[in-house]
Nucleic acid binder design. Structure first.
Ligand SMILES: [Mn+2]
Ligand SMILES: [Mn+2]
Length: 506
DNA sequence: GTCGTCC
DNA sequence: GGACGACAACGCAGA
DNA sequence: TCTGCG
């Protein structure tokens, strides 16, 4: 039967999923230590930091990874270094009695990346570094490498090598039933130099890019665009999954004003879910711009999304992570059927790029630094990451005002018209995408379009010479291995919009 | 891709 | 057992 | 208030 209570329990994450995260190790300066309980009475945790100029930036507590010997030795070395004052530039949050020490001792720590508020995720003490001068410990962390996830991904690729059209895939501790692996999803397209791509190819792609796409999907309500018979078959949107689903699939319940009902949305929060959705014929993953996850930028916002409209509106889901500029060319190729949407063409995309660069210039004039990706279809997505202090309404106002400003400068090239015919020949800036519940194709999601293009985050330098079909299912994994995620730090680049909003006021 | 319904 | 439909849905803009 | 829109 259907699962009634599908709420995900953080404590029950499988080890398989934990492995997907990148692992780093780095050296940090010890600036204090805490008392613990029982056997850990002498030393509960270390307070770690690194030098930035002459400021010691706090990075994290670390309490895991010690044994009796390392506790004894570390404590002995720290005791003589005690001081009365906090050596860090910040006031770290203290959860136990804390002793400050002169920042002279260095510890090597393994961790799973950085949290949004610049602390270490899941830090584990490895050893003391007597050989390193504490003054040399700057903020130089080795680039995150998905080394540990590689083996997991390769295990999946191995399993997909079979000739069989169906199999039960082991994804860590979980199992995903796969069928119709040789079904053609993207037929061969000689004009685009595109060999046929099957469902097996789609699964291979998702396995390979999973370390890059999963962070962009995490905690965001999902709309699936499903094409179980391939890109030329019937396609449909799906926002809710009422059928039975595996245990590893997380959902959230969201209030629906219209039906006076509660709706379950899927969250694609782990690798088995990603592959299970591919098995269901989901070719495109469209996600909200807000997340069902509180953070350091959401003080006072709730996590009750279900009980009432008021609760939803005051929850974190009403506060987007970015202001969205959806850049849609309405310059037609001339080959479209009457009434059809504009098809991809070079003239249109070159103009969209020009608009994106104008937009960047304007935003930079407001001290805002936007990021850009191809949508995969015909246009571009330009995002300004913001702290989650503005609701969708405010984000939409910003997008509209900036859009109108740009339209005034370039009236022949930009439109904000609601009527489709009036957009003809121009680039449409769709500021109304900044609304709760609206979705866009997520970074690295494929499109159900000829050539199997994917939405690709780019540097602005790369955009200058880019074309949507440069980035495809067939070559994106290779690019990512080379360049990493150009949007890897979206959630760490949050900016303030106060000035823009002041100007917006009448 | 899968389920429910109708014949 | 085969055919067929469902699988979204909401608030904003403009008239 | 109705309709087109994504
Ligand atoms: Mn678009
Ligand atoms: Mn659009």
């Amino acid at each position: 039967g259907k699962r009634k209570n599908s709420t995900y329990e953080a404590g029950k994450r499988s080890t398989a999923w934990l492995k997907v995260k990148a692992t780093n190790s780095a050296d940090f300066v010890i600036g204090g230590y805490t008392k613990g309980k029982g056997a850990r009475a002498p030393l509960g945790a270390l307070l770690l930091g690194y030098w930035q100029g002459n400021k010691l930036r706090y990075a994290s507590h670390v309490g895991s990874g010690f044994d009796d010997r390392s506790i004894k030795r570390t404590k002995a070395l720290l005791e003589p270094l005690q001081r009365k004052t906090n050596p860090f530039a910040e006031e770290p949050e203290l959860n136990a009695p804390t002793s400050w020490v002169e920042p002279k001792l260095v510890a090597e720590v393994q961790f799973q990346g950085w949290t949004d508020d610049h602390h270490l995720r899941a830090p584990v003490f490895l050893r003391l570094r007597d050989d390193i001068d504490a003054k040399e410990v700057r903020h130089k962390v080795e680039k995150e490498k998905p080394s540990r996830s590689l083996s997991e991904v390769e295990q999946i690729l191995d399993q997909l090598k079979t000739d069989r059209a169906a199999l039960t895939l082991a994804v860590g501790a979980h199992q995903v039933r796969l069928t119709h692996l040789d079904r053609v999803y993207w037929p061969a397209d000689p004009a685009l130099k595109q060999p046929a791509l099957t469902k097996r190819d789609l699964l291979r792609y998702f396995a390979q890019v999973s370390p890059f796409i999963l962070p962009h999907l995490a905690d965001r309500p999902l709309t699936m665009i499903r094409m179980p018979d391939g890109i030329h078959g019937q396609r449909f949107f799906q926002k809710h999954w009422e059928q039975e689903r595996p245990d590893f699939v997380q959902t959230i319940t969201v209030f629906s004003a219209h039906k006076d009902e509660q709706h379950a949305y899927l969250l694609c929060n782990n690798l088995p879910t990603l592959l299970w959705l591919a098995q269901s014929g989901t070719l495109e993953f469209h996600v909200w711009h807000s997340r069902a996850k509180p953070g350091p930028d959401t003080a006072g916002k709730g996590t009750d999304y279900a009980s009432s409209l008021a609760a939803l509106e005051s929850s974190v889901l009403n506060y987007p992570d970015y202001v969205v500029f959806d850049i849609d060319p309405y310059i037609y190729s001339g080959k479209e059927a009457p009434g059809a949407e504009p098809e991809l063409n070079t003239v249109a995309f070159e103009k969209a790029k020009e608009v994106a660069f104008w937009l960047r210039e304007l935003l930079q004039g407001m001290s805002l630094e936007p990021i850009v990706k191809t949508s995969g279809k015909t246009g571009l997505h330009v995002f300004v990451p913001i702290r989650r202090t503005l609701d969708f309404d405010a984000a939409r106002q910003v997008s509209e005002i900036v859009g109108r400003h740009l339209m005034r400068r370039h009236p022949k090239d930009i439109t904000l018209e609601w009527s489709v015919p009036k957009r003809t020949g121009k680039i449409f800036m769709d500021y109304n995408m900044n609304v709760r519940g609206k979705t866009l194709n997520v970074a690295y999601s494929p499109r159900g379009a000829p050539g199997a293009p994917v939405s690709m985050p780019l540097t602005w330098e790369e955009l200058a010479n880019a074309h949507p079909l440069d980035f495809r299912l067939a070559n994106a994994a290779e690019r990512l291995a080379r360049t990493g995620d150009r949007w890897g730090d979206v959630l760490k680049r949050k900016q303030s919009l106060e000035k823009v909003l002041e100007r917006a006021k009448p």
